[in-house]
């Protein structure tokens, strides 16, 4: 493999642009979705239909003073948002947008994304611990407590798909769905996957570590300005990656009629993100112990049974 320095820089710039643009669009989309679901219009002032609102907010956030609490563990406090954000740049690398558009084809791309996804939790834990705030600490502890409950079903989901395709490469998985998308074979698995990634991205109804009405703002209670916006950026980028993974694993990647592959990928990704937003603006929050028992008692058996059945069918 020969990668030139220029190539790496190119990838980095491209991914950074993607992350930034994606966050701008998603924040705007989220507010629009929230607004319209609540008989409102959402942002309307900055730009047509408020499309530039996120930029205005971003400038405001960046220009704000970075407040570090006296009692905070300074290095950890500052490190946490970065730990949350940086893995995203790596996790975007193996994501294929079409047959040809892909930063780097990795034969273990799937594993990379899943492993890096865990680092998000580390960022949350660091933020919770470093802020030296009890609410933040509770938020961080909750994030860690729930990892196993969703990671195992998530991994089993992914394993099932890997079993069906026989490859860890996202590109191969997408190519294997040229004719029929996996979601048609595995509808239940798709639901389980969507639920687990909602958990993974800390989105309502599973936003325990933020839990506004309980923990004020959870792990980012003490963050303001830039730190806060980095967490925001991280959250939306994780959503993008999770939706991208769902697209590749279940919705056939870039396959679709008429439109070019990249367009299809983006349409699918944003549809899934829309679905996650729809959840958020519909449901009340689950209680954390209920979620844990839900993870262990429903998601895990469901995905396991599905796994076994799939294995059986494949063996026949």
């Amino acid at each position: 493999m020969n990668i030139s320095l220029l190539g790496i820089v190119g990838y980095l710039v491209g991914i950074a642009a993607l992350v930034g643009l994606n966050a701008v669009i998603l924040v705007w989309l989220e507010r629009k979705v929230a607004g319209h679901m609540q008989f409102r219009l959402g942002p309307m002032e900055v730009g047509p239909h408020g499309i530039l609102q996120t930029l205005a907010d971003g400038i405001k956030l960046v220009s704000k003073q970075l407040v570090i609490p006296d009692e905070a563990d300074k290095p950890l406090f500052l490190l946490a948002p970065i730990v949350s954000l940086v893995p995203i740049f790596a996790a975007m690398v193996p994501l294929p947008f079409s047959e040809t558009v892909q930063a780097w084809e990795l034969n273990i791309g799937l594993l990379l994304i899943i492993a890096l996804g865990l680092l998000n939790t580390l960022g949350i834990l660091l933020a919770g611990w470093g802020s030296n705030n009890k609410y933040a600490l509770l938020g961080g502890a909750r994030a860690v407590a729930q990892i196993l409950a969703y990671k195992i079903p998530l991994l089993i989901c992914v394993m099932t798909i890997i079993m069906m395709t026989g490859s860890f490469s996202l590109r191969d998985i997408a190519i294997a769905q040229k004719d029929t998308w996996n979601v048609l074979y595995q509808p239940i698995l798709f639901i389980v996957y969507i639920i687990t990634v909602t958990l993974e991205t800390n989105r309502s109804p599973f936003d325990f570590s933020e839990a506004e009405s309980e923990l004020v703002a959870g792990f980012h209670t003490e963050y303001s300005g830039m730190g806060f916006s980095l967490f925001f950026l991280a959250e939306y980028s994780y959503m993008f990656i999770a939706a991208g993974l769902a697209t590749v694993l279940f919705l056939g990647g870039w396959h679709g009629p008429w439109l070019p592959g990249v367009a299809w990928t983006l349409i699918k990704i944003y549809s899934i993100i829309f679905l996650m937003m729809w959840f958020r603006w519909t449901f009340p929050r689950v209680r954390i112990d209920q979620m844990l028992s839900f993870g262990w008692k429903i998601l895990l058996p469901l995905s396991l049974i599905n796994f076994i059945i799939t294995a059986g069918v494949l063996a026949l």
Binding site: G35, H36, M37, Q38, F39, R40, L41, W278, W281, T282
Partner: peptide
Amino acid sequence: TGMRVTMGNVFTRPAT
């Protein structure tokens, strides 16, 4: 059902 309601909300006239 809940999701149907919120989707319905999208298509009603905003109250603001």
